[in-house]
Every structure is written in structure tokens, then in C-alpha cells.
């Protein structure tokens, strides 16, 4: 099946075809921190075997002062605790205060469960979100056939083939 992906800029397009999940709200406040995460979770399953849990991060911020992007990633990566670190393959970046969850080395995509109680904070939605990594044009689907500017010349679209 042929479909299109639309992105406001090429950085977003690159993350989109590499399996990023985009937040739908400005999660970072004017203090540079994300508030309201204490005790809330991001729940990941294995995108290759969707029924299999991969790991859960439960954010810790008892004082409620908020977490910086660096602190959020440290908690996802479970820095300072004994391994294994199943979620160390992921990271959250922020552009224009909006979260973007991506594999550090895009490999299999991400399966973020809708049961994640921290999802509304980031604007990731309440349903399961599964992303894929797109292959080049001569690979197997999902694959990117091309990336072009839109006719309005204000953004970009990718023509893709989905499985």
C-alpha cells in the first residue's frame, strides 16, 4: 500500500522515517523542566514481538520540581542502577519544548503502550503507538520511495510503501 508522510521540516522527516514518536503538546515548561511525572510510567513492549514486555520506566520526582530532559533520559536509561538496561536504546529529545521519543540507533522501531501513565504529560496519546523504520526505495516495505517539498513549499512529504 502506498501512503505519504508529512513533516514540517527535514529534521522531523528524518526522525519520522526512523521510527520516532512525537509528542502532541509542549511538555517542557518555561523553567526548562517537565512537571507532573512523579510516579508515572512509560511502558514499552518489544516491537518485534508485540506481546512481550520490554521494560517500564517509572519517573521519580518526589519533590515535584520537575525533571530536565537530561534527568528524564537518565531515568529511562536507569543510570546509576544495576543492569540490565533494556530501555537504554531509547532517548527523548525536545524541539520547541515538544517531546520526541526515538531509538538512539534506529533498528526496530518503538512500541509504546497506551497504558503508559506518563504519555499524556508528553502528549504521546492514550493508545498503543507502534512505529517502524523505513527501508530505502529498493528495500522491502516499509520503505521510502522519495522525499519532496510540498506544493506550498512550506514542508515536506515522503512517499512510502507500507507492508
Amino acid at each position: 500500500m502506498i501512503s505519504t508522510l508529512l513533516a514540517a521540516d527535514l529534521y522531523i522527516m528524518q526522525d519520522l522515517i526512523n521510527g520516532a514518536i512525537f509528542g502532541g503538546r509542549k511538555a517542557v515548561g518555561t523553567t526548562g523542566k517537565v512537571l507532573g511525572l512523579h510516579g508515572k510510567t512509560l511502558v514499552f513492549n518489544d516491537p518485534l514481538i508485540p506481546a512481550n514486555p520490554l521494560g517500564t520506566v517509572t519517573f521519580d520526582n518526589p519533590g515535584g520540581a520537575g525533571l530536565t530532559p537530561e534527568e528524564i533520559n537518565d531515568q529511562i536509561h536507569d543510570v546509576g542502577n544495576p543492569g540490565p538496561f533494556p530501555l537504554a536504546i531509547y532517548m527523548v529529545t525536545f524541539a520547541d519544548r515538544t517531546a520526541r521519543l526515538i531509538e538512539i540507533t534506529p533498528t526496530n522501531g518503538i512500541l509504546l503502550k497506551g497504558t503508559s501513565t506518563a504519555s499524556p504529560v508528553f502528549g504521546f496519546g492514550k493508545e498503543d503507538v507502534a512505529t517502524v523504520i523505513y527501508n530505502p526505495f529498493d528495500g522491502v516495505a516499509p520503505r521510502v520511495i522519495g522525499v519532496q517539498p510540498t506544493v506550498e513549499m512550506d514542508s515536506y512529504y515522503a512517499t512510502v510503501e507500507l507492508p
Partner: peptide, 10 residues
Amino acid sequence: VGGIQVRAQL
């Protein structure tokens, strides 16, 4: 994986 393209902002 494709040719050289012009950015939307030209």
C-alpha cells in the same frame, strides 16, 4: 537514496 533536491524554502 535519491537525487539532490531543493529545500522547500529554496
